[in-house]
Amino acid sequence: MSTLTPYERLKTVRSPARPNGEKYVRALFSDCVELCGDRRFAEDPAIVSGIGYIDGIAVTYIAVDRGEDIEARMKKHFGCPMPEGYRKALRLMKQAEKFRRPVVCLVDTMGAFCGADGEERGQGQAIAENLFEMMGLKTPIVSVIIGEGGSGGALALAAADRVYMLENAVYSVISPDGCASILWRDAGRAHDAAECLHITAEDMVKLGIAEGVVSEHGGDFDLLCGELQKTVARELRALSKLPTEKLLAARYARFRRIGVYEEGGDR
């Protein structure tokens, strides 16, 4: 288990030294064929997707990629997908459904891209459509938060049957920096905000948002990918045995039970 504080974990997953999404794709999947474009507007390089095998199972993979060098990073908006990125992901999920292939999503994003063009092309609508479609997609979906799970832009690839967190990965409704600016008008207090927001892998398991945590083996990438591959393949095999109706009912129930409120009074 990670000994880092929540904020240290956020720093860790945002570090340029951290393996990016595409590196995970190469390590986890074999015989890959990359598939591009949303067929509506453009190709968004912030999302790397295609088909390949994981431990012998043919899957559709969808990964957010922050880019290796600065050139790639700028092209990929530092891993913040545009609406066309989400629409490409959805296109490939629907394709996966058609061929009864499970979907594996690797999530590592500060969030959906915040720009005028993104707004013009319906960033909110694109995410909403993914959520709506994923909640009814007739094939198993396993999502892994490999780095940063930033808000709706991450959830749009994680409305899944199973969600796993890498040991140092974080998942948050708002970036701790943003939260600190709103709360204390001081982005410098992101450290405190990270504590308050409960963003760690263990928090996610405790809150019922993730099924488990995958060890990073002290930074040994090969060992990490070996374990992650086994975990994902095991879940896919189990999920593939479920009849579609049960799969969808369980996915609904998985999210249905998340929430804390009181109920009393008149009704």
Partner: peptide
Amino acid sequence: ARMQEGAVSLMQMAKCSGA
């Protein structure tokens, strides 16, 4: 989403979308 409820509030988006 209501940040004061952490990632639980984020999940309400998926929960409602499912319904």
